Amino acid sequence: MKGLIIEDGLLLTEMKITYNGKALELDRVLVDTSARESVLSRANALDLNMPLGGEDSPKGSSNKQITAISVGPLKIVDFPIYVKDIPDGKLDGILGLDFLKRVGAKINLDSMTLSGSRVI
């Protein structure tokens, strides 16, 4: 189970991204059930030494394969994530439906927690 907070009307959590042996803890990640895919900010991708060229989509994002993504005990290895600029600049990333569905996420707003029903 991972804690959630509401700040400025946004549902936020923390997550850890690992890419080529380097890990990065992200403090302000939006939990967005309307986002199709999970997103890492371009600034954080650069911190992980991710190459940003190639595979660019028309929306200005690029799809990268990361070693692992984890939100508390919920972890997926070899996970695709989109890298793009996040407009407000206050978010480190977005946790989208691709991650939430794979872990069988349960969002409990009474206890402000995120848990999962599947072990990946």
Rank of each mutant, 00 (worst) to 15 (best):
Met1Pro: 14
Met1Tyr: 11
Lys2Ala: 13
Gly3Lys: 15
Ile5Phe: 07
Ile6Pro: 06
Ile6His: 07
Leu11Glu: 09
Leu12Pro: 13
Thr13Val: 01
Met15Gln: 02
Lys16Ser: 04
Tyr19Glu: 10
Asn20Cys: 11
Gly21Leu: 12
Lys22His: 12
Leu24Ile: 10
Arg28Met: 01
Arg28Gln: 03
Leu30Gln: 07
Val31Thr: 09
Val31Ile: 14
Val31Gly: 05
Val31His: 02
Ser34Lys: 12
Ser38Val: 04
Ser38Asn: 09
Ser38Glu: 05
Val39Ile: 15
Ser41Ile: 01
Ser41Pro: 06
Ala43Leu: 07
Asn44Pro: 07
Asn44Lys: 11
Leu48Ser: 08
Asn49Arg: 14
Asn49Gln: 15
Asn49Phe: 11
Met50Gly: 10
Met50Arg: 04
Gly54Cys: 11
Glu55Ile: 14
Asp56Phe: 14
Asp56Pro: 08
Ser57Leu: 15
Ser57Lys: 13
Lys59Arg: 13
Lys59Glu: 14
Gly60Tyr: 15
Gly60Lys: 14
Ser61Trp: 09
Ser62Leu: 14
Asn63Thr: 12
Asn63Trp: 10
Thr67Ile: 08
Ile69Glu: 01
Val71Met: 08
Pro73Lys: 06
Lys75Val: 04
Val77Leu: 04
Phe79His: 07
Phe79Thr: 06
Phe79Trp: 08
Pro80Asp: 05
Pro80His: 04
Val83Thr: 04
Lys84Cys: 06
Lys84Phe: 04
Pro87Thr: 08
Lys90Asn: 08
Asp92Thr: 05
Ile94Val: 15
Leu97Met: 13
Leu100Asp: 05
Arg102Thr: 08
Arg102Asp: 06
Val103Cys: 05
Gly104Cys: 10
Gly104Met: 10
Lys106Ser: 10
Leu109Glu: 05
Ser111Met: 11
Met112Pro: 06
Thr113Ile: 02
Arg118Leu: 09
Val119Cys: 03
Val119Leu: 05
Ile120Asn: 07
